[in-house]
Simulated scan of single mutants.
Amino acid sequence: MKVTEHLDRASNPLISYEIIPPKRGGSAEQMLGVVEELMPYEPPFIDVTSHSAEVSYKPMPDGTWKRCVKRKRPGTLGLCAAIEARYGIDTVPHILCKGFTREETEDALIELNYLGIDNVLAIRGDDKGVEKDLSPDRSRNEYAVDLVSQITDMNQGAYLEDLMDAQPTNFCIGVGGYPEKHFQAPNMAWDIMRLKQKIEAGADYVVTQMFFDNAYYFEFVEQCRSVGIDVPIIPGIKIITRKRHLQSLPAHFHTDIPEALAAEIAAADSDEEVKHLGIEWALQQSEELLSANVPCLHFYIMSSATTVKEVVEPLREMA
Rank of each mutant, 00 (worst) to 15 (best):
M1G: 02
K2A: 15
V3C: 13
E5V: 12
R9M: 05
N12C: 04
P13L: 13
I19S: 02
P22I: 04
A28Q: 13
E29H: 00
E29P: 02
L32Q: 11
V35H: 02
E36A: 01
E36R: 08
E42A: 13
P43Y: 03
F45H: 11
F45A: 13
F45I: 09
E54K: 10
E54Y: 10
S56L: 09
K58P: 02
P59V: 06
M60E: 00
C68I: 14
V69A: 07
K70P: 03
R73E: 11
R73H: 03
R73S: 04
R73M: 13
G75Q: 08
I83H: 00
A85I: 04
G88F: 08
G88Y: 04
G88Q: 07
I89N: 05
T91Y: 13
V92H: 01
I95K: 11
G99Y: 07
G99M: 03
F100R: 05
T101H: 10
R102V: 15
R102S: 04
E103V: 00
T105F: 13
N113G: 10
G116A: 15
I117F: 08
V120P: 07
V120T: 09
I123D: 04
R124K: 08
D126F: 12
D127P: 10
K128A: 13
G129T: 03
L134A: 05
P136Q: 09
S139D: 11
N141T: 03
S149V: 07
S149D: 07
Q150L: 15
Q156Y: 06
Y159V: 07
D162P: 13
M164K: 03
P168E: 00
N170C: 09
C172E: 09
P179F: 11
E180D: 06
K181I: 01
A185N: 02
P186K: 11
P186E: 12
L195T: 14
I199W: 05
G202A: 13
A203G: 08
A203I: 10
D204H: 13
Y205L: 06
Y205I: 11
V207K: 01
T208R: 07
T208K: 03
Q209E: 04
D213Y: 08
F220I: 02
F220L: 15
Q223S: 06
C224H: 13
R225D: 15
V227C: 12
I240W: 12
T241M: 05
T241D: 06
K243Q: 08
R244N: 14
H245A: 15
S248R: 12
P250R: 10
H254M: 09
A263P: 03
A266I: 00
A268F: 02
E273Y: 00
E273G: 14
H276R: 02
H276W: 04
W281I: 05
Q284T: 15
L297M: 14
H298K: 02
I301N: 00
S304C: 10
S304Q: 05
A319H: 01
